[in-house]
Design a protein around this nucleic acid. Sequence first.
DNA 1: CCTATTTAGATTGCGCACAATATGATTGTG
DNA 2: CACAATCATATTGTGCGCAATCTAAATAGG
Lengths: 163, 163
Amino acid sequence: MSPKTTHDRRTPTSGPQGVAQQLRLDNQLCFALYAASGLVTRAYRPLLEPLGLTYPQYLAMMALWEKAPRTVSDLGEALGLDSGTLTPLLKRMETAGLVTRARDRADERRVQVDLTDRGRHLQDQAAGVPSALACALDLPGEEIVALRASLQDLARKLRGTGK
Amino acid sequence: MSPKTTHDRRTPTSGPQGVAQQLRLDNQLCFALYAASGLVTRAYRPLLEPLGLTYPQYLAMMALWEKAPRTVSDLGEALGLDSGTLTPLLKRMETAGLVTRARDRADERRVQVDLTDRGRHLQDQAAGVPSALACALDLPGEEIVALRASLQDLARKLRGTGK
DNA sequence: CCTATTTAGATTGCGCACAATATGATTGTG
DNA sequence: CACAATCATATTGTGCGCAATCTAAATAGG
């Protein structure tokens, strides 16, 4: 939290017309990120609908396929979501028969989320999803790697300042 | 995490360990995008709160600062949002005194959204937001440009397949 | 003209997403 | 042991975001 910031003098776009230019949607990295993220979620929808999953649920399943059982907060840390989002999401997945939720015997504050057989089995059906989407993205492999690295770099920096 | 490829198993683009490896969160460009987008929205929150705006509302204001009045669908096209999202969002902004919504006299199906004086004035107060966030991102200018270009490229490709 | 189709928004219902708050379990301290 | 502080999760309220559906206005075709 810097008290007074004077960083608006360093860009070549500052000045009388600078502000309006900076506030243009097309010039904003952040809007490009927002728009691309929404488009990707939409692109997943038809692929995930046969599996009965939404995109955030699919991400939660991926986290569980990597490691289960795990606690709600562990899952939240992996996904960058809090309990206010995860609790209802996991309840829906429990209703769908994909996961179980049970209080940890050793520490009753925790809830252990585990996969059901059906949830585990879903991984086989999801096997084709990443490549199907990669196909829709139609980006060269190097660019995917570079883009992912840039985004992870950005995320790392924001995580530092955020919390 | 060596990017070395081994034998193909079932999928055409299988990675080092096959399906399980492809379904790892960290290997997914899409999750990197999802996570980064959420982090950026969170990073904007404290900057926009003094202006009384949420992040999507801020994007809508930017679109209106570029051109106003404009119709709901025109705004929706610029932002990649539909009327189900925009109608309540614009109503909240109307309640906040930032915009007006009025049926087009010439074509009563359309609703023209325009800025109020207060809405126009807000642009001055928002002038420091992009640079403050750029500061938080802490990315070299070239990388921002490259990242934005990659995201826009990706968005263009997805827009083609989506609709 | 007069109906049929198309178009622009609004509405409804569901699912994230998060801040603020509440609840109950565990840990720390005297 | 008491009891305050902390911790993990749940709940509540607000705001996106979209599919499906509805309404009214504009346009097309006969």
